[in-house]
Design a protein around this nucleic acid. Structure first.
Length: 190
DNA sequence: TCCAGGATGTTCT
DNA sequence: GAACATCCTGGAC
């Protein structure tokens, strides 16, 4: 297992969102290592995508969407951290939101960070998984293709079917279905 | 300095 | 499925 190269990320957001399913997110923190399989993602574009933070003016908060692919893009919604990966080449905005993981390792650490025992409640939502994995704004701009701390590894989880739907929690969505998830996986958020 | 809003989560019915 | 707790951010003053 090794990290994806930048060329994996510098492509169409929907394509990257779909191909991130079944891949493995690793966070090596001072408290310990937590690992989860990605089971749910959403793609966000730039101009013309009303749900995207890049459809508005470029600011300090959203500018990472214009940067090169493969970087951790983190922001807060409803007092919860959201973990995204930048996609597309520098100058073209795009990001993929990681919405849910299946816990693989470091489960006791996830439980103590979340304050719950139920494994199903650890990482089945974008705010839940950042808390369980210990991901905060400290990881903003981190390069997932190079970092040893936070990275996405290629893996061999291929035995699953992909389903798609409209994105969740957005007030105005595109016609395209841009939420991807592993069909039947119990850790998908809805 | 104030304050509305937001790619949510939890706890109710 | 609906109410509401949560809290940071940037723009409005």
């Amino acid at each position: 297992m090794k990290p994806f190269p930048r060329s994996f990320y510098e492509r169409d957001p929907a394509k990257v969102a779909r191909e991130l399913l079944g891949k493995v997110l690793v966070h090596r923190s001072p408290e310990g290592t937590t690992i989860g399989k990605i089971v749910e993602t959403e793609a966000y574009f730039g101009r013309g995508d009303p749900a995207s933070r890049a459809s508005r003016k470029r600011t300090k908060l959203n500018e990472l969407m214009w940067w090169r692919g493969g970087l951790a893009f983190i922001y807060m919604v409803h007092a919860k951290w959201m973990f995204n990966v930048t996609v597309e080449r520098e100058g073209t905005p795009g990001a993929v939101l990681i919405r849910a993981l299946e816990p693989l390792d470091g489960i006791e650490l996830m439980k103590s960070r979340r304050g719950v025992e139920d494994k199903k409640l650890l990482t089945s939502g974008p705010g839940r998984l950042t808390q369980a994995m210990g991901i905060t704004y400290d990881h903003h701009k981190m390069d997932l293709t190079r970092s040893r701390v936070l990275t996405v590894l290629d893996d061999t989880f291929t035995n699953f079917k992909i389903a798609r739907s409209h994105r969740i929690g957005v007030s105005a969505d595109l016609k395209r279905k841009l939420r991807f998830f592993i069909r039947g996986n119990p850790f998908v958020s809805k």
